[in-house]
Lab assay of single mutants.
Amino acid sequence: QGDIVVALYPYDGIHPDDLSFKKGEKMKVLEEHGEWWKAKSLLTKKEGFIPSNYVAKLN
């Protein structure tokens, strides 16, 4: 089961498979690959890669 993270900063995706998000948006982490994680937005239901240093895990 994936962790839920919250965006600390907004992110505008650079690549087509990036997931753009707004500050405060919550996402479910699907896979962790070093600095880039695959996640699904709980708001938009879209999936893509996010920079892990832009988010914090919720406990």
Score class of each variant (00 low, 15 high):
T44I: 01
E25H: 03
V55Q: 00
T44A: 03
T44N: 07
E35I: 12
F21N: 02
G24R: 03
G24A: 04
K46W: 05
V5M: 05
V55K: 02
E35Y: 15
F49K: 09
T44V: 02
L43T: 11
A7R: 00
A39C: 13
P16G: 08
H33E: 06
V55E: 01
W37E: 02
Q1N: 12
D17T: 12
A7E: 03
H15M: 10
E47P: 02
K23E: 07
P16S: 09
A56G: 07
E32T: 13
K26R: 13
D3C: 14
W36M: 10
L30Q: 05
D18K: 10
P51M: 05
L43N: 08
S41F: 01
I14W: 08
K45Y: 13
D3R: 13
L19Y: 02
D3Q: 14
A7C: 05
K26E: 07
Y54N: 04
Y54L: 12
L42Q: 05
V5D: 01
N53A: 14
L8E: 03
A7M: 02
G2V: 10
V5Y: 13
K57I: 10
P51W: 04
D12V: 15
S20P: 09
G34F: 04
P16N: 08
K23N: 04
Y11E: 00
G24E: 04
G24I: 00
K26H: 14
F49T: 06
H33V: 10
P16F: 08
E31I: 10
N59V: 12
I50W: 01
H15R: 13
Y11S: 02
F49G: 04
Y9E: 07
K38T: 06
I14E: 10
G13W: 03
K28N: 06
A56D: 07
V55Y: 03
K23M: 08
P10W: 08
W36C: 08
V6E: 06
G2A: 10
D18W: 10
A56S: 10
G24Q: 03
T44G: 03
Y54F: 11
N53Q: 12
A7Y: 01
V5I: 07
D18A: 11
K38S: 06
I4Y: 08
L43P: 02
E47Y: 06
K46D: 07
I50M: 04
A39T: 05
S41T: 04
P51Y: 04
K23F: 07
H15P: 10
K38A: 05
L30C: 06
T44C: 04
K45M: 15
L19M: 06
H33L: 11
H33K: 11
L30V: 07
E32C: 14
P51Q: 04
P10A: 14
D17W: 15
Y11W: 15
V55W: 02
L42W: 04
F21W: 01
P10T: 14
K40P: 01
L8T: 04
D17Y: 14
A39N: 01
L42K: 03
L19I: 04
N59G: 13
K57L: 11
Y54R: 07
K46L: 12
S20W: 05
K45S: 14
D18R: 09
M27E: 00
S20V: 07
Y11C: 05
E25L: 01
H33P: 04
A39P: 00
G2R: 09
V55A: 05
P51T: 01
V5P: 00
I50C: 02
S52Y: 08
A7T: 03
L19F: 04
G13A: 14
E47L: 07
K40F: 12
L30F: 07
D18F: 14
L19S: 00
D12C: 12
F49E: 03
F21A: 02
E32M: 15
L19T: 02
Y11N: 02
H15N: 11
W37F: 15
W36L: 09
K23S: 08
V6G: 02
W37G: 02
V6I: 14
G13I: 03
L30R: 03
W37Q: 07
L42Y: 07
P10Q: 13
K28V: 15
N59C: 14
K28C: 12
G34W: 05
K28H: 09
P16R: 08
L42D: 03
V55H: 01
Y11P: 00
G13Y: 02
L8N: 05
A39D: 01
G48K: 03
D17G: 15
I4L: 09
Y54V: 04
A7H: 01
W36H: 07
H15K: 11
P51D: 03
Y9R: 14
E31C: 12
D12K: 14
D3S: 14
K38I: 11
P16T: 09
K22H: 09
S52M: 11
D18N: 10
G48H: 02
P51V: 02
V29Y: 02
A7N: 00
S52I: 10
N59Q: 12
L42R: 02
D3T: 15
Y54M: 09
K45W: 11
K28R: 14
L8D: 01
K57E: 06
N59S: 13
G24T: 02
L19A: 02
I50G: 00
P10R: 13
Y9H: 08
A56Y: 13
K57R: 14
G34L: 04
T44Q: 04
V55M: 05
W37I: 14
P51H: 05
E35A: 13
I14P: 07
H15V: 05
G2K: 10
T44K: 02
E35K: 12
P10L: 06
A7L: 01
E25D: 08
T44P: 01
E32H: 11
V29I: 14
A56R: 13
I4F: 08
K28Q: 15
N59R: 10
D18V: 10
K38Q: 07
Q1V: 15
I50D: 00
L58D: 08
V55G: 02
V29W: 02
M27W: 01
D17P: 07
G34P: 05
T44Y: 02
G2Q: 10
K26G: 04
K26L: 15
L42P: 02
A39Y: 01
Y54D: 01
I4W: 08
H33W: 10
V6L: 06
D17V: 06
V29G: 00
A39G: 05
K22Y: 06
D17A: 11
G34D: 06
S52R: 15
V6C: 09
G13Q: 07
P51N: 05
K28F: 13
Y11R: 06
D17L: 12
T44R: 03
